[in-house]
């Protein structure tokens, strides 16, 4: 996330005179002594932030290194000892995982759950967001306030009722059921995000298109979707990661044949010590896709997360 995450403000409004490496803290009137103090302070801040950054990085590094060690090595010593003996690192855990049909199946289940639910959410929420932003009908603002209210409804409320509903419909345990559930619970946020963004599109553009006699669907496709691109990108990435990382919905609605990676790995957690080879490498694989998405589209993801404040 770069400074443009803070899209509302100029990226760096402060003066940054070259001789002062601490970002222009010192006003011109300051004495040499206070400048020196500021520099020292900045040195302490640097050290502190390096330590904090390490605090955030090292646990993840620990998981990664653990996943490259044999179960015997992991049982015998801490992962950090492997840093001194890189020769003992091995890809055996990952090879074992690829030979494990349960895990490979769960990887594809994660894909099969995540992709359709993300697409459905984006399409349905775009249509609804457009209607709520630019179409005139009775009760529109109340409807949108209702969506805002639904943002915070806890997922737990739906578990029992939907489980019964699915039981009656015969889709309990299936991927379809999981996908539809994610769509239902992803929609309030998705509509909220897109409606607010669409509503900010300049009115003139819409009116010009309507003057030209454009059909609503055409306007939606030709004007709203291209202009709403950034918001749709944010939503897509946010939803993708949200569903990819979900555990609770899968725990309730996916059976063993249709379980995603999170549920498959959770089952191994009961024997944490004994299954550390599967758990560490599996958890790392489950992290790779989100991390790639995050680093590739960090700006959109951060904006999506920020829009989700008070969800």
């Amino acid at each position: 996330m770069s400074d443009d995450a803070a899209a509302t403000a100029p990226p760096d409004a402060r003066p940054d005179p070259p001789p002062e490496p601490d970002g222009g803290e010192g006003a011109p009137r300051r004495s040499a002594a206070s400048r020196a103090a500021a520099l020292l302070g900045s040195g302490a801040v640097q050290v502190l932030l390096v330590l904090i950054a390490l605090f955030w990085l090292v646990p993840t590094l620990g998981l990664f290194v653990s996943s490259l060690r044999t179960p015997a090595d992991n049982a015998a010593s801490g992962w950090w000892t492997a840093l001194a003996r890189p020769a003992e690192l091995t890809l055996a855990n990952y090879a074992g995982l690829l030979d494990n049909p349960v895990f490979v199946g769960s990887f594809w289940n994660t894909v099969l759950i995540t992709v359709p639910s993300t697409l459905l959410i984006v399409v349905i929420a775009s249509l609804a967001g457009y209607a709520l932003a630019w179409m005139e009908f009775p009760g529109r603002d109340w409807l949108f306030l209702g969506v805002v209210a639904l943002l915070v409804v806890p997922i737990q409320v739906a578990l029992v009722p939907i489980a019964q509903l699915y039981g009656g419909a015969g889709i309990y345990g299936s991927i379809v059921g999981v996908v539809l559930f994610h769509v239902g619970f992803g929609l309030p946020f998705a509509i909220f995000l897109l409606r607010n963004f669409f509503a900010a599109i300049p009115r003139d553009l819409l009116e010009a298109a309507r003057m030209d006699g454009g059909k609503e669907l055409t306007i939606f496709r030709r004007v709203i979707l291209p202009l709403g691109g950034p918001a749709i990108a944010s939503l897509t990435i946010f939803q993708f990661l949200w569903v990819w990382n979900d555990l609770l919905v899968a725990l309730v609605f996916a059976d063993a044949a249709n379980q995603p990676m999170t549920k498959a790995l959770q089952a191994e957690m009961r024997q944490f010590g004994a299954n550390i080879d599967v758990i560490s490498s599996g958890a790392f694989i489950s992290m790779v896709v989100p991390l790639v998405v995050f680093f590739a589209f960090q700006r959109y993801f951060v904006q999506g997360v920020m829009a989700g404040a008070v969800k």
Binding site: L241, S280, A283, S286
Partner: peptide, 25 residues
């Protein structure tokens, strides 16, 4: 920017993965 990236990164991965990371810690 680099600092924020590092500290924000856990938001992208699942609670399950974070949980595994901290079980190890």
């Amino acid at each position: 920017t680099a600092f924020k990236l590092v500290v924000f990164m856990p938001m992208a991965v699942s609670f399950l993965a974070s949980g595994v990371i901290f079980r190890l810690v």
